[in-house]
Amino acid sequence: MSSGVSEDGAARLVLFLCLSLVALIAAVAAATAFGDYNIGLRTVFLSVTNELGLTGAEIAPIEQSVIWNLRLSRALVAALAGAGLALCGAILQALLRNALAEPFVLGVSAGASTGAVCVIVLGIGAGSLSLSLGAFAGAFAAFALVALLSNGATSGPNHTILAGVAASQLFNALTSYIVTTSGNAQQARDVMFWLLGSFGGVRWPDFQLLLIVVIVSFVICILMARSLDAFTFGDEDAAALGVPVVRIRLVLFGVTALLTATIVSMVGAIGFVGLVVPHAARYVVGPMHMRLLPACAMVGAVFMVIADIASRMIATQQTVPIGVVTALVGVPFFAIILYRARPQA
């Protein structure tokens, strides 16, 4: 039997998850319908049921192709990327006990960028597969550097954050060095677009890979949600509550690095989602991770799909990089967090 207190919370969580699921479906439908030219929602719906073999409605092949091959896969990848980044943010904020922590704090995105730039500018390997691999390798190089600098993240949250800052600076400097010394104007433009994030060019295989990574990460995080709660009063307190601190830290940092590296290698460095979403979710479902993590995943997914729609709608005939949209929303939110986190007089 549950207590009155936890039942209230559970009912609220279920309601919240249902509402956000409806919002997600609506957002994905909208993302599929709106674009350079708009397609009716009815056509979108029939097109999806056609592909699933449920209906046999007549739809122009071009529309069918735009809906299925371009827009729907893009919207679903956006949803997964948002969910994954939000999950990473929630985990890092708990482990590092820092309200401003997010995936990029570990320097992972900077490392991924350097890896990608090596491929684009220096031409190490060729084609989109090697670009992803380059980003992936860079992300893990950064992660390894941070782990090394912070003794496997055992020497305290501030130490880990400082190590992340150092890694970010190093890899950003490397990226700039490579671009300025070796790149031409077109390459610089490509790199810049990639650094700010873009869902252009994602296809179904990206979705399948990301789906697996996000689901596996989510399951691991949920299994460790109780342990994450125990970090509320710090590492030693968690140990006194019976949590294997070192193991939990390493596993969850690894999951965070894997998720971030996968996402960055597909869609570039999209900032602020990991920072903003966990804070927003905490207001609604509270700080305990068994509720916070599912809420974060849903809010992150909805937020990213809407941000992607906005990135395609703000400027006519042009797509604004998704990182610009998330930052335009994220920075004011960041300011609010800073303001609220100031020492109370």
Binding site: V5, R97, T232, F233, G234, D237, R282, M288, A341
Partner: peptide, 15 residues
């Protein structure tokens, strides 16, 4: 522990 603290917005029951 001696004076353990948190920034997280937890309630008495949560703790």
């Amino acid at each position: 522990q001696q004076s353990a603290a948190t920034d997280t917005n937890v309630t008495v029951a949560d703790v």
